[in-house]
Design a binder for these strands. Structure first.
Length: 484
DNA sequence: TGAAATGTTGGGGCG
DNA sequence: ACGCCCCAACATTTC
C-alpha cells in the first residue's frame, strides 16, 4: 500500500504563516501542496493581465518558501485532482475558502464529487476576519449599510482569531508531473509587464516587511495623510492581501499591537475600518452574487449611460486633459496600482462627467490593478457610481481640479505622472487651460499637442449627469428593495 | 470618503 | 457716531 498523503490547494492564500488549511493538512502527515491554473474561468472573472504578472512572481516566492515542493498544473481542477488521486493514496484534501460566486459553485461541485470518491474535504476560513454568513441584522437579513455592519455586526461579533504559526517540520511532496512555473505562461508575451517590477517586492516575506514599515513609519499619520497621494502614508498592502501573501488576521492583530501609541489610535481605527470595508465588499458579494454585473439599486437599470469608445480610451490612457485624472490613470498603467483618493476621482470622472457605465471602469481596473479583487472592485465601483450598497449619493460629483488643489497641493503627484506639464506654475497645474498663453508657452505646454485640451466641460457634464439622475427619480420607486 | 448655490455674519472703508 | 456697502469667511441648503 502506498503511503497516505493529503493534498493542499493553494488559491488566494499564497503564504505559509497563518494558513489554516495548510497547517491542518501538515498536521495529518505528508502533504502534496499544489496550485492549479484554470484558464477556463468564466469570462468576466478571468484574471487580468496585471494579476497574472503578480501571480507569477508570488508563486515563484511561494515555491521557494516550500523548498521547491510547490506543484503546478494547468487545466480543469477536477480532472487534475482526479489524476492525482489515481497516482497517490489520498484520503484528505484541504483548502481555504474563496467567496467569488463562481468559486463557491466550483468548490461545492468539487466537494460533492470528491466525497463520493470517499475523500474527506476540509475548507477553512483564511482570508476574511468574519464569515459573511455570521454577520446578520436583528431581522436576520444582510446589512446594507457599512457603519452598522461594521460597528454592530463585526465589532460586536467574536473577535478574529490570532494568526497561526507555520507548519512544524512539514513533509512536502514534489510530484514529478508538476510543470515549471514558466509553463503557466502567466507573463505578458510582449513583455510590457517588466515596467511593473520596479514598483513591487512580491511574496510573503516582502508583504510582512511592508506591513512593518507601514506600522512603524506611516500608520500614525494614516487618518490625516491617507488622502494625499504624494505623501505615501497608505499601506500599499492590497495586492498582498488580495493574493493572500498576508492575511487580514495578521494585520488586524499587528494593529492591536501598536495602538498603545495614544496619538496614533484614531489612525489605527481608521486603517482598521479599511479592512472593514474589504470585509463589507466580500459580505455584499456573498449575499448579492450579482454585484459584479448588476446595479445593486435596480432603479439605476434605466440610467442613460453614453456609448463612446473614444472617450473611454482617452480615460484609459490618461489623456483626458484633467491632470489629476490623467495622473491617476497613468499611475495605474505604470505601477499596477492607484492611490485610493485618486481612484475615487477618476471613477467619478468616468461615471459622472463622461457618463460611461461603471462596468467599463470596473473592467479596466480589473485588468490593470495588481490588487484586482472581484469583491472590492465591484462594490467600490458601484459605490462611486451611486448605485451600490451604502453608496455615495449620485449627486456627489468630484471636481478633478479642486480635488487636485486640495489633496495634491504642491502638485508633486501630478508632476510625477504627467511630466509634460510639470513646468506649469502651481495655480495652473490643476487646470492648464486656465494659464495665460505666455505662461503655457514658457512651460513648454501647447494644448492639443503636448497635452490634451480638457475633453469635457466640467460644469456642463456635471449638469447633464444630474439631469440624467433626475430622470431616475421620476421613475416609479420601490423596485430597489426587491433585489435578487 | 462633494460641489455649488445660497444664506449669514462681521469687520473695515467711506460718506 | 452711524448707516451703508462691500466682501471675505463661514454656515446651510440643494443637487
Amino acid at each position: 500500500m502506498k503511503q497516505e498523503i493529503s493534498l493542499f490547494l493553494f488559491r488566494r492564500d499564497l503564504r505559509v504563516l497563518d494558513n489554516p488549511g495548510l497547517l491542518a493538512a501538515c498536521q495529518r502527515g505528508p502533504v502534496l501542496p499544489l496550485c492549479i491554473l484554470d484558464e477556463k474561468t468564466p469570462g468576466p472573472y478571468k484574471m487580468g493581465e496585471t494579476s497574472r504578472w503578480w501571480l507569477h512572481h508570488s508563486l515563484e516566492k511561494l515555491a521557494h518558501d516550500l523548498d521547491g515542493a510547490l506543484n503546478l498544473y494547468v487545466g480543469d481542477p477536477l480532472s487534475i485532482l482526479t489524476e492525482l488521486l489515481s497516482r497517490y493514496n489520498v484520503r484528505h484534501i484541504f483548502w481555504n475558502r474563496c467567496y467569488e460566486p463562481w468559486r463557491i459553485e466550483q468548490d461545492t461541485t468539487l466537494k460533492t464529487i470528491l466525497k463520493e470518491k470517499g475523500i474527506t474535504v476540509e475548507s477553512f476560513q483564511a482570508s476574511l476576519l468574519w464569515e459573511p454568513w455570521q454577520i446578520k441584522t436583528k431581522e436576520d437579513t444582510p446589512y446594507r449599510v457599512f457603519t452598522p455592519y461594521y460597528k454592530k455586526g463585526c465589532l460586536q461579533a467574536p473577535p478574529p482569531r490570532s494568526p497561526l504559526p507555520a507548519p512544524k517540520a512539514p513533509h512536502y511532496i514534489k510530484d514529478e508531473k508538476s510543470i515549471p512555473l514558466t509553463s503557466l505562461q502567466l507573463r505578458a508575451k510582449n513583455g510590457w509587464d517588466h515596467k511593473l517590477e520596479a514598483h513591487w517586492l512580491i511574496g510573503e516575506k516582502a508583504a510582512h516587511e511592508k506591513m512593518h514599515l507601514f506600522l512603524n513609519n506611516d500608520v500614525a499619520h494614516y487618518k490625516e495623510g491617507r488622502d494625499f497621494p504624494a505623501l505615501g502614508h497608505t499601506s500599499r498592502l492590497s495586492p498582498h492581501l488580495s493574493f493572500g501573501e498576508i492575511s487580514p488576521h495578521q494585520i488586524w492583530h499587528a494593529l492591536a499591537g501598536v495602538s498603545g501609541l495614544e496619538e496614533a489610535s484614531p489612525s489605527i481605527a481608521s486603517f482598521a475600518s479599511e479592512l472593514g470595508w474589504r470585509e463589507f465588499s466580500y459580505y455584499l458579494l456573498f449575499h448579492f452574487p450579482d454585484l459584479p454585473h448588476t446595479n445593486f439599486q435596480s432603479k439605476f437599470d434605466a440610467f442613460p449611460w453614453r456609448a463612446d469608445t473614444e472617450a473611454l480610451q482617452q480615460w484609459q490612457q490618461g489623456q483626458t486633459g484633467y491632470p489629476m485624472v490623467d495622473a491617476g490613470m497613468r499611475e495605474l498603467w505604470q505601477t499596477g496600482t492607484m492611490h485610493n483618493r485618486v481612484r475615487m476621482v477618476v471613477a467619478s470622472f468616468l461615471v459622472k462627467n463622461l457618463r460611461l457605465d461603471w462596468r467599463l471602469g470596473a473592467a479596466w481596473f480589473w485588468d490593470c490593478l495588481a490588487d484586482a479583487d472581484l469583491a472590492s472592485n465591484s462594490a467600490s465601483w458601484q459605490w462611486v457610481a451611486g448605485c451600490g450598497a451604502d453608496a455615495a449619493p449620485y449627486f456627489r460629483i468630484f471636481n478633478p481640479v479642486t480635488q487636485g488643489q486640495k489633496f495634491d497641493p504642491d502638485g508633486a503627484y501630478i508632476r510625477r505622472f504627467v511630466p509634460e506639464i510639470a513646468a506649469l506654475p502651481d495655480p495652473y497645474l490643476f487646470a492648464p487651460w486656465t494659464a495665460p498663453i505666455p505662461v503655457q508657452r514658457a512651460a513648454g505646454v501647447i494644448l492639443g499637442q503636448t497635452y490634451p485640451h480638457p475633453m469635457v466641460d466640467l460644469a456642463k457634464s456635471r449638469d447633464e449627469a444630474l439631469k440624467a439622475f433626475q430622470l431616475l427619480k421620476e421613475l416609479p420607486m420601490g423596485l430597489e428593495n426587491e433585489l435578487r
